[in-house]
């Protein structure tokens, strides 16, 4: 009922309409192989990240540190590769290190938020500054390029069956996260916790542990997003990933994920990511500078969340009325 709910069946039509509109507007540049690859790359990074952050949204949390954590993990992977002398072993170590950093960050977020009962936005707002500082300290405020080994550049650039590798990462992560949320016991607990934490606690769910795990997942996918981004651009800096906080949250929101918790699906979030990818690409093709895109994206957030808030308000009013009636009759 809640969430920015585009009917299930209209979603493909919206995508097709979007593609057609872009094709019509930019017939020479949009439907080209090169550009489609661009769209897919853009989609994949947002998609990878939103598949983890959806867990946080579902328990009613938020992560404002996506952008700088993404940058930090990009810096970590690149620095570790350099430390290992640009070897393939270094790539492995770097990837593991970056993922560990992401998981750790999520763990700390979750722990502080649940133990001290502090709003998630504040904790992640403060930690974004920490991650930014860490990246700047490590890179000494410089862009660190990393063009070797091939194992690293392949992460972002290699094509399999004509599609860029990150798309496959996104699909794997999306399927994994869909599986966890849709199929497992844990996934069902996540929706329960987001829907009513007190009732979940009474039903024997360890609310604290589940919430922390959600932040850990979010940290891990953010780190993977950072790794892919670093590989795609063959460099890392503190600014890597800037802007992705908004993109990921917007993707979630237009994909029907409620920021109030308890509502949202992985396919919805992927739909949101694709739409965001197309939006980014479309704005780009229309020669709208990336600096202006924030205008459109900001408005999209306000409209989508405003819609959600409106529905929620109506529902709670209805509910209050309902309860009032019950009380009277008693």
């Amino acid at each position: 009922m809640k969430g920015f709910n585009i009917s299930k069946y209209s979603k493909p039509f919206i995508l097709v309409a979007f593609v057609l509109i872009l094709t019509a507007l930019r017939p020479t540049t949009f439907p080209t192989v090169g550009n489609i690859a661009n769209v897919l790359w853009s989609v994949s990074v947002i998609g990878i990240m939103v598949c983890g952050t959806i867990f946080v949204f579902l328990v009613g949390g938020i992560d404002l540190s996506i952008a700088t954590l993404c940058g930090f993990s990009a810096v970590v992977v690149v620095e570790v590769i350099h430390f290992f002398g640009d070897t393939t072993l270094g790539v492995l170590a770097g990837v593991i290190a970056a993922i560990c950093v992401g998981a750790m960050a999520g763990c700390v977020h979750g722990f502080i938020i649940t133990t001290f009962n502090i709003p998630a936005f504040l904790v992640t707002f403060a930690s974004q500054s920490v991650f930014l500082g860490l990246s700047m300290v490590i890179t000494n405020n410089k862009i660190v390029s990393c063009t070797a080994p091939a194992a690293f550049t392949a992460i972002g650039a290699m094509k399999v069956f004509g599609f860029p590798l990150p798309i496959y990462f996104m699909l794997v992560i999306a399927i994994a996260s869909w599986y966890v949320l849709r199929k497992t016991e844990f996934g069902r607990y996540i929706y329960a916790v987001g829907g009513n934490a007190t009732a979940s606690e009474i039903s024997g769910i360890n609310v604290k542990k589940s919430t922390i795990l959600c932040y850990v997942f979010s940290g891990i996918t953010t780190a993977i997003g950072g790794i892919v981004l670093a590989s795609m651009t063959q460099q890392a800096a503190a600014a890597t990933g800037s802007g992705y906080t908004n993109d990921v949250i917007t993707a979630g929101v237009i994909g029907g994920v409620s920021l109030l918790g308890g509502v949202g699906t992985v396919p919805g979030a992927i739909f949101g990511a694709v739409l965001m990818g197309l939006l980014n690409n479309g704005l780009n093709l229309m020669s709208v500078p990336s600096t202006h895109a924030g205008l459109v994206k900001g408005l999209v957030i306000i409209i989508a969340v405003g819609f959600d808030a409106m529905q929620h308000r109506d529902q709670s009013r209805k509910r209050a009325g309902f309860r009032l009636f019950k009380k009277k009759a008693a």
Partner: peptide
């Protein structure tokens, strides 16, 4: 079965199936 049904008893947004199964996985 807790006293305050709406706040402690069930998850309003979830289906009967999910609510019934919640303690029984």
């Amino acid at each position: 079965v807790p006293e305050d049904r709406r706040n402690q008893g069930f998850i309003p947004l979830l289906s009967t199936t999910r609510n019934v199964a919640l303690t029984n996985y």
